[in-house]
Write a protein that binds this DNA or RNA. Structure first.
Lengths: 201, 201, 201, 201
DNA sequence: GATGAATGAGTGTTCATTCAT
DNA sequence: TATGAATGAACACTCATTCAT
């Protein structure tokens, strides 16, 4: 009984891992379910025992990957004492950037999935919502609370948060993956200085 | 002779316009060449006389659309006298944002195409390059020259430019199309203030 | 021991009942074994312990249902005294028509199954034979015996019987289920009058 | 131009003929589109240039075949003078029975298709309607008019017509194809005598 | 005996591309 | 040049059947 359940978990994980690799290397639209099952070493029908279709498996992957990353970042930030909120926030940003620098596959995947939202009309809301709800929401709650405690007096915390996240996301993607306009380590000081400016009254 | 050439231009333009509309409304992957030729009112084979495939026509469209927009923005900025560079730069940004607010189809299209670069491995370089080369390069040349003249003393003008462009691009997309986190008109003051902070020594 | 046998009977019956309902509501080709076991609440493998395939269970159903109906009709006709054979025969016909009017599901099922015979080459003989042998044969034996006793002097009782049965079957099906060309109660007098004409010397 | 159209007609006809043969020999549900195109010697995609799906081609076939048969029967009946209506009507019936005896494939096909109506819920109405409208309607119009002229005084001509058609249809099918209960030539006198009885006041 | 996870052959359908006209 | 009929590889998805537990 337990052995069966275990084998099932194994199969599901194998499918998730295989899909992850293929989505990154070939793109989602170019990846077929045939590709996934072939690489995962299972029969076609087996895929449908675990996932409804290609977008279902992608959805599951996105959620697991992003939530994990954000949770780790926040958890890790609790270990240290900061002189102010900005320092703590930059620590979290730095944690995420470092994680994505070391796991470029993950970076590609997250970006590609967000693009599916941009692309595919009927996923826009669903995906964006999932992402907002589960991943960045975590971070925003914490951002708002701490900004208040530190009396930063941000006129609109949500907009400030939104700007920083989008700035970090879009610039680091290009910097990490293409070293453009400069490699990430060279870019970091400029970025963090800019974030400080944005948070400074 | 000239009439034939004209008819050809007409056909090419009709195909471009039709593809543009379809790419926006249905997405690129969901648009078939059959759709394009049907709506354009030409035969299937005719498409292949003008374009290699779906991605070829998309490429042509992207370049034409973005270069035009940026050129207009810069040209328009020459009409006025500014007290400093920041004012002129914000004018250009504002021009582009307004243009995209009024032509949401264009906004969607530019974004979707950039996403294709993110997506599809073998387009990444080509598209990004095209875009950088032809469209934003125009703007950056002007940015650098004027920043120098104004003695802004930016430690690294390219990085600063990169950050601003990415910030504007990613946040305005969401704001204009989804009013999220706030509508564009409400968002503008925050954005411009942030850009000023970034440019301020 | 006996309890196990009973449980088995129960399972078989449950499968038969479920299949019957599904065959009627969805049609035989549209009903999958998955549907049957899901509705019956048993595992997929269990089906194959009791039946060879979909057509096997259908075959069993047809026989049980039709034989039962004809037996009831004949048995019921024994309770009354008739002035002649025609009266008794019409009584039996009437009994069957009434039964099928009240159980339209049964009517649909019998007809649909007969059609499978028409349809599916390798069932043609088997089914028709089964049906002839087990169900209408019962009735014909009785028809012939009584027709002799009554000195109807039918030149060919088998052909007469065949014509009447087919006439009743095909017209009542449409009349009961679709009220076409008229509802069954309105149709009955015409039908019985016609049967009398056919039996009349 | 004309050559292309001709080739198209040829292809369509080839598909229709092939489908007809397969529907008869294997049944409709057992015939796949792959079977049809393979036997017809065209590519899979070609099928979809001419027909929407399997049921579309079947529908076209049914209509063409049945309407043709009934029209021929009626047309042929005009060539002769009859002493009364019953004689003319029996002539038409005889014409149809002879045609179907000689073209058993056609008989099978017509019956199988009518069964699809019985089978497949969402074709019931459409097909029955098509059939009624286009084929037997022709015959009924003529039946009614001539029955009036001949002062047959049928209490309900529609019901009488319905009974005769169903009787002929269901009994001849078995007789022609299976010689059951007797071969068609042996059966005919019984059938025609019965029809006369039914039409007799 | 009963289960249900796993299989993979098979289906209908789409669509980029070709090429004879 | 322009056409659009024809192609056939490719796809997502289904489901009867098997078999280890």
């Amino acid at each position: 009984m337990s052995k069966i359940k275990e084998k099932q978990r194994e199969k599901e994980q194998k499918l998730l891992d295989t899909a992850f690799d293929l989505f990154i290397s070939k793109g989602i639209h170019e990846t077929t379910i045939q590709d996934i099952v072939k690489d995962a070493g299972v029969a076609k029908g087996t895929f449908y025992l675990y996932f409804r279709d290609k977008y279902d498996i992608m959805n599951v992957l996105t959620l697991r990957k992003t939530v994990t990353l954000f949770e780790e970042a926040i958890k890790s930030s609790h270990k240290i004492n900061y002189k102010n909120f900005t320092e703590q926030f930059l620590f979290i940003i730095d944690y995420i950037i470092n994680a994505l620098s070391e796991d470029k596959k993950l970076l590609k995947f997250i970006y590609k999935n967000l693009s599916v939202g941009i692309y595919n009309t009927h996923f826009q809301t669903e995906l964006k919502d999932n992402f907002q709800t589960n991943a960045s929401k975590l971070l925003f709650e914490m951002f708002k609370k701490r900004a208040d405690e530190d009396e930063l007096n941000l006129p609109n915390p949500q907009i400030t948060f939104f700007m920083i996240i989008e700035l970090v996301g879009s610039t680091c993607y290009t910097s990490i993956l293409f070293n453009s306009p400069v490699p990430i380590e060279e870019y970091k000081p400029y970025l963090y200085q800019t974030i400080e400016k944005i948070l400074r009254p």
